[in-house]
Amino acid sequence: MMQYLVILLDDTSVSYCHADNPYSVRRLIGLNDLRAGILFAMKQNLMIQFVYPDYELPQEYLDLIDTIDHHDIKPWYAGASPADVTVFDKSVLAGVSPVNQGVAVLRLTKAELFENVEAIGKILLKMQRLNIVVTDIETITDEELKSYAAVLEGLASVLKDEYLAGRMPQLNLLTDRMMLDRPNHCNAGVENITLAPNGRYYLCPAFYYSNPDDSIDPQDIRNQQLLRLDHAPLCRHCDAYQCRRCIWLNRKTTLEVNTPSREQCIVAHTEREASRQLMAAIREQAVFMPEVEIKELNYNDPFEVRKEW
């Protein structure tokens, strides 16, 4: 069931997910398109998530945005007003010290992630929740996967100490799998769609970024069933619940929205295993979520065991 409408307020609105925003020239969404998007959300009973650029919007936009309940997703920059979700990039690793934030997204490349575990650990301590998005994860090699596992191990060590001290910061890569008892997929095209600054609708911002002609009719999404979990032959059997099951990455890497690449699966299973080990490490010293069990698996890619299902 559709629940959210993401509205990109400007072509330079911050990317909060895998795909980089290729636009560098400011272009605000037209006021009429914004008004129509808000009206659409009201009539469809959708919660709006406004995605902001790194500059202050004109007052008429702010007034219009204020006409409806919504969430704000904003880039972090000096002087930025508070947001429901704040998006950071690698500059936060270079000594910029964000104040205590609620929910934050940290977008990094693999290399930036591998080289900055300690700094990320410190940032994690300042947040209620940190979502790390690795922007080039689809190219991860088997060798890099070992580095990724080492990063998770390092961050798990930070989290273990926090949890044993009674604090419970959330890190999507490690704590989601412990907390979830069902998949927490992005569900673009099923639970959310995106209105772009050109006034057209897309399955998610990434589809707009990669091809503006790839728009959809929000009232009639073609082959929408293929976006659902029950039409994803690999994912519907998978219990790496923290995986976002990004349909844009799926299509980019396998040409099908319902099929993940090997890289996505092995990354998700590395996170799942790190979560399992974190849980075990905490349990060595305290009673912790005794009702939850994460089983040990003998594979890293569900594709390898598809014939057993």
Partner: peptide, 26 residues
């Protein structure tokens, strides 16, 4: 055309995953 590779670079096995997981009901 749905090209899954070429004789120089070989097969991109990610592009075969949808084919090898296809079933009747889906």
């Amino acid at each position: 055309a749905l090209i899954i590779g070429n004789i120089r670079d070989g097969i991109n096995y990610n592009l075969l995953r949808p084919f090898l997981t296809l079933d009747r009901t889906t």
